[in-house]
Design a binder for these strands. Sequence first.
DNA 1: TCGCACATGTAACGCGTTACATGATTAC
DNA 2: GTAATCATGTAACGCGTTACATGTGCGA
Lengths: 179, 179
Amino acid sequence: MTKASKTEYAILGMLSIAPMSGYDIRKTIQSSTANFWAESYGQLYPALARLLKQGLIRADTPEDHADKKVYHLSEMGMDTLKAWLLKAPEKQMIRSEFLLKLFFGANIEPLVSLDHIKAEAYENKNRLVAMQEKKIKLAEEHKDSKHLQFWLMTLEYGIHIAEAKVKWCEAMMKNLGEK
Amino acid sequence: MTKASKTEYAILGMLSIAPMSGYDIRKTIQSSTANFWAESYGQLYPALARLLKQGLIRADTPEDHADKKVYHLSEMGMDTLKAWLLKAPEKQMIRSEFLLKLFFGANIEPLVSLDHIKAEAYENKNRLVAMQEKKIKLAEEHKDSKHLQFWLMTLEYGIHIAEAKVKWCEAMMKNLGEK
DNA sequence: TCGCACATGTAACGCGTTACATGATTAC
DNA sequence: GTAATCATGTAACGCGTTACATGTGCGA
């Protein structure tokens, strides 16, 4: 396994939940970890091929669906996943164009920065509502799953962050508005 | 100017604060926008060359320092910067290995996830203290600068986020500890 | 029958980091 | 004198996105 790319681990993790096709892995990632993790097909399919070659996953082809491949974890794959989960996660630098523009805001009309902040507030309020709804749905649909607790934690993380952003936006709107 | 890379704009923005060498731009970025923006020399110097070629910046060489280049914005450069600042910032996807590991936490001992969360709490508390101190220092050092207000806003953003993360960590520590 | 979702893959491209290479200046 | 900081740049590499290419299954 290469050192830097975590796509392989993301795949192993998804397959620890259930056997899936590449297509399904993508869909699952988009609907469950979209707030903090994304994968494109350009990463996914080559990574699946590598994992297969290394024996970390195996493929089944359903009889009625000759062009479909359902992958599942091998024992080695599960061990690799667990070993990765034990290690301290690496920090990754974020790049926020929004904050960069705000940082240089003295060069333009304050109203422009105010607009950007309003848009940020609006977006985070929407995301907040969506995440609250998702929380309820998730708790219902997976109420007996061992995964539920952890999934709710990552959702709650997103909620905490979005709330903080909204609060900050509102404070800054006052800050800029009073001028 | 290419479509996707924002390195050029980050440079123009830094030069809107003061004329600087490439080395100084890097240092300024690291000490002021490190929480939301980073640049490496491998990006910086080629970008400076491109900006120079396009006439968006100009270079002076100090007499006593023949190997040093001090860049400053041209009028066109300032216009380009302003035009960019007016546009709505693009979203960029983040990737959090921390949250990804937590998402798959059901595969391992809960104590491991608890450890990761404790580490996250610790780190954010430290960052919080550093940012609080920075806030005071910044307000003193740039109290007459038109930039101060905006710089404080980006700092305050980091503080809001870090506080939210700490709160979330503490809630999750209870959540996992009670089991 | 038409369009959407399912399904798998590759190629090109650009972004960004890391490591390398080199040398001057300054502070102790 | 020697170590740290200042100072500029390039090369190699890998990651990740986007666009391309192709085809099947199914429901309205």
